[in-house]
Design a binder for these strands. Structure first.
Lengths: 212, 212
DNA sequence: TTTGTGAATGAGCGTTCGTTCAGAATAGAA
DNA sequence: TTCTATTCTGAACGAACGCTCATTCACAAA
């Protein structure tokens, strides 16, 4: 929300008010965007949703795409704020990874609508905004990278450090896949079992010890 | 193209002509959709692209969404027709899987624009059309399932048969991820190395033998 | 009480788009 | 050639959209 607020110009001078109104805009827009998609949602609908007039909403944003950016940014920071507090680990890397996977995958489950939306609509942002969202995604991936490096150092993981980045992306994607393949996965698995199996897969991939 | 052609009604009676014209429509639409997205492409553009008038195009489709369906169907069958001829395997399951991964991932690389498009715009289809596209995706996944089952039977893979479906989806997604995460992956890896590492990961996951 | 400020309003502008339809062009049969 | 069936054409339609701007209004300062 930080960078976002700065970037988008507003006609209104009272900064606190801008923040309040933008939160209202995002709150109304998220639901509509997720339900109907960005293109099929009208700015009028968003405004009407919380009793603001079409004119007023344009005092706080420049274009409809600004709303998309605010929403994408909001979704991403919601996810990462939900994840962060759980990521102060003292255990060995193996347990740390196990927990991180569990947390991240659970959050994907909770926020699957949002994550699906990010996958489908980020492309509608302009280059700069898209880059910013990608950067945020990379930051999340780095959390997994760190744990993996720790595991290599303490000998519990046996992958080359060249492969760490890819491995971290794999973990992220295997989590997000629960959202964007839900049409089939959620017919066959429940989230707990899904996390179990995927965790087992990932750890086996990393494991230096033989497991039967 | 088969099922698709049947479903969508046309004003024109000559069936061969319908097929010819629809191929033209798809050919023009694919490029534009991939480049600009579905919503930002106009029906006029598509028609103009190959010198058809706006009126004529509506003799061969009912709505703009019909074009989207034709395009999604075209993309999916292109992928699966590129994959199929390579999938007559006599080797052991391990080698079969290695080859299948190599082929599928290479095709994802070649057709990354299309695959990205599918991810982002399938949602704009109506329920029935979307289901049809999902079904096609499941069929592709079953190719990997079959190889995995074969590997379990001949003892080269050590996963429970309950996990086969998920494993197959993992492989598909790890392939497609090359397309939808290209903004970062293709900065750090080339396709050959990407395939190498992922193949290694996947095989290790499945392996019953210890690998150092 | 008067004046100044800035947020809120919504009718409406300009434009675009998907879609239709009356008629022109064309091909094939008689 | 004439007649008919079929395909092609693009002007026209009208709904919908993002966005603007002249105006109102509540409140605070003077």
């Amino acid at each position: 929300m930080d960078r976002a607020t700065k970037k988008i110009k507003s006609q209104v001078k009272n900064k606190e008010l801008v923040e309040i109104r933008r939160k209202e805009i995002v709150k109304a827009a998220v639901d509509l965007f997720v339900k109907k998609g960005f293109h099929k949602t009208t700015v009028r609908e968003i405004a009407r949703r919380f009793g603001m007039s079409i004119g007023t909403i344009y005092e706080y944003i420049r274009t409809k795409e600004d709303i998309l950016y605010l929403v994408c940014d909001y979704i991403h920071s919601s996810v990462s704020e939900r994840v962060k507090p759980f990521l102060t680990f003292d255990e060995n890397a193996r347990e740390a990874l196990r927990r991180a996977i569990n947390i991240y995958f659970s959050i994907v489950d909770e926020m699957q609508d949002y994550i699906l939306f990010l996958y489908q609509e980020t492309k509608s942002l302009d280059r700069e905004a898209r880059k910013y969202i990608f950067r945020a995604e990379e930051h999340m991936t780095e959390i997994f990278e760190k744990i993996l490096y720790r595991g290599i150092e303490d000998g519990s993981f046996s992958i080359s450090s060249e492969d760490v980045k890819l491995m971290a992306h794999n973990i992220m994607v295997l989590g997000q896949m629960w959202a964007f393949r839900r049409w089939v996965l959620q017919k066959h698995y429940k989230i707990d079992r899904y996390i179990d199996i995927q965790t087992r897969f990932i750890l086996k991939q990393l494991d230096s010890k033989l497991r039967v």
